[in-house]
Design a protein around this nucleic acid. Structure first.
Lengths: 101, 101
DNA sequence: AGCGTATTTCGATAATTCTGGAAATATAGT
DNA sequence: ACTATATTTCCAGAATTATCGAAATACGCT
């Protein structure tokens, strides 16, 4: 992952509402939850939730799939994982003294 | 790590300048770099850099230590690690079907 | 076509953040 | 005390973001 993309994704996760959404979805698993479920569980006004969801979709952290009447939001767990790994990648490559971690 | 704290830290990492700083420091290792080194390497105006450093310090992602004339910035690698791990903690606890990750 | 439920788009306001120049502060050396 | 280097604080303008009500859209059912 390149720096700019990682920063974008971090920024989206750097909002307590959006982080709540992602945490809920990650916990729930890859099959996802409906928008309405998220709304009820987290008690977010529909328009606010929709705004945050579209931002998360924008950076690839979740995807949506329609099943008739309802939309399912699925966390893109490999993307989250990659982002997490990015933070410490190449750690200490300029300093062999890793003792005091 | 609790949600609010994690979101704060993510938000600080969600800026390309600050993420550059952290990446540089993480790569360089726990012994840190001087403020001036960071400034030269990343080519950031001093006041801008100082602003971003203070934000990173604020959330515990880096610490500073004075050595006579210069200030060293040391990445708090365990904190970064904890944050990274937070993202996927309790993953899929509500859904045993983890196959399609 | 009309209705009901689910979700998004629009629009507007308040709040926060980013950036960098100029001035201030800190520390060491003379 | 004075000078030099390193870094922060102050300030202010531009830009971005968060929030949510009201209206619009999407889809299935009858």
């Amino acid at each position: 992952m390149q720096l700019g993309r990682a920063a974008q994704r971090m920024a989206e996760l750097g909002n307590i509402t959006r982080l709540s959404i992602i945490r809920l979805l990650v916990k729930s698993g890859p099959s996802g939850l409906r928008v309405g479920e998220i709304q009820e569980i987290l008690e977010i006004p529909a328009s606010t939730l929709s705004h945050h969801l579209s931002r998360l979709i924008n950076v690839g952290l979740i995807e949506q799939q329609r099943k008739s009447n309802v939309l399912y939001c699925m966390p893109q767990i490999p993307v989250v994982k990659e982002l997490a790994e990015y933070l410490l990648s190449e750690c200490c490559s300029g300093d062999t003294n890793i003792k005091n971690l």
